[in-house]
Design a binder for these strands. Structure first.
Length: 270
DNA sequence: ATTGCTTCCTGAGCGC
DNA sequence: TGCGCTCAGGAAGCAA
């Protein structure tokens, strides 16, 4: 599932593949893939691609009207695939197709249909980004800020890491990896953590997200890059989907937290 | 204010 | 082979 490193990988791929290209039309196969579909007149040149948390933001320079943004959240199974032709690709689970004036296209494919696209004129409030917290790789995400967030919440540290209104970008895979590397039990109330422990979690968050980006993300099941290739970081995971601890070989414990599975080592994580 | 449960959705994997 | 069941989970919406 695309978390910060996967979305960043897609962002970088898109910068190489579609930056400067002109969108001339859009095919909608699943209308509910859109958050608020007011304007279907999606035409213009892609002149900037950015990311905040797990959101991808594509800025369009509209030649005959107001510039706008295409804001995309891939959720569980969403993919953006570039295809050199607007024909001949696998139509299964294709929800939206952005057509370029050179005949190529960008396909939004999404098996479980949880992904969302929002198209908004520039300088308007983006509904989906309204409540989002600070990006985990932003320079403004400082240790002091993270320390204060932890000290102000008694929720389990894993739930805190997953709360996008506090810190944006961490999902279920990386939250577990961060806590394993930090040797912290995912169930620990955030405000019970010592300064050194918070420091470790903070540093591991930055380190693992950056390392995962270097490996083009984690392809557990559905994640694919824009050219349909997989990332590599699944080969470096230490707890997610594992049965035994890679340090002490003990059986890993699996529990549910906030409706999502958590795997951890009872003896290595305190 | 805060926390936690339910809902959306499809395919993979499993036991029989 | 095929059926029915469980599981995967991000975030909105709602309830406590």
């Amino acid at each position: 599932m695309p978390e910060l490193p996967e979305v960043e990988t897609i962002k970088r791929d898109l910068e190489k593949q579609v930056l400067g290209k002109e969108i001339c039309d859009m095919r909608i196969l699943l209308p509910r893939a859109f958050e608020n579909l007011h304007n279907t007149d999606v035409k213009g040149i892609i002149n900037q691609i950015s990311r905040i948390g797990k959101y991808l933001i594509i800025k369009i320079n509209n030649l005959s009207g107001i510039d706008f943004l295409i804001v995309i959240h891939l959720r569980m199974t969403g993919k953006l695939i570039y295809h050199h032709s607007s024909k001949g690709f696998d139509e299964k689970h294709t929800r939206v197709v952005f057509l370029f004036n050179d005949g190529a296209c960008l396909i939004f494919n999404d098996v479980r249909t949880f992904g969302k696209i929002e198209i908004v004129p520039i300088n308007t409030r983006i509904e989906s980004l309204k409540k989002i917290g600070i990006d985990a790789l932003s320079e403004h995400f400082t240790f002091k800020l993270f320390y204060d967030i932890c000290k102000s919440k008694k929720t389990p540290i894993k739930n805190l890491l997953l709360d996008q209104t506090l810190i944006a970008g961490i999902g279920n895979i990386y939250a577990q990896e961060i806590l394993f590397l930090s040797k912290i039990m995912p169930t620990r109330p955030a405000n019970s953590l010592k300064k050194k422990e918070i420091k470790d979690i903070y540093q591991n968050t930055k380190d693992i997200l950056e390392l995962a980006i270097q490996h083009n993300g984690t392809s557990i099941s559905d994640f694919r890059r824009v050219d349909d290739k997989t990332g590599d970081f699944q080969n470096f995971l230490k707890v997610y989907g594992k049965k035994n601890c890679c340090i002490c070989y003990a059986d890993l414990i699996k529990i549910k937290q906030a409706g999502r599975s958590t795997t951890f080592c009872q003896s290595c994580q305190k």
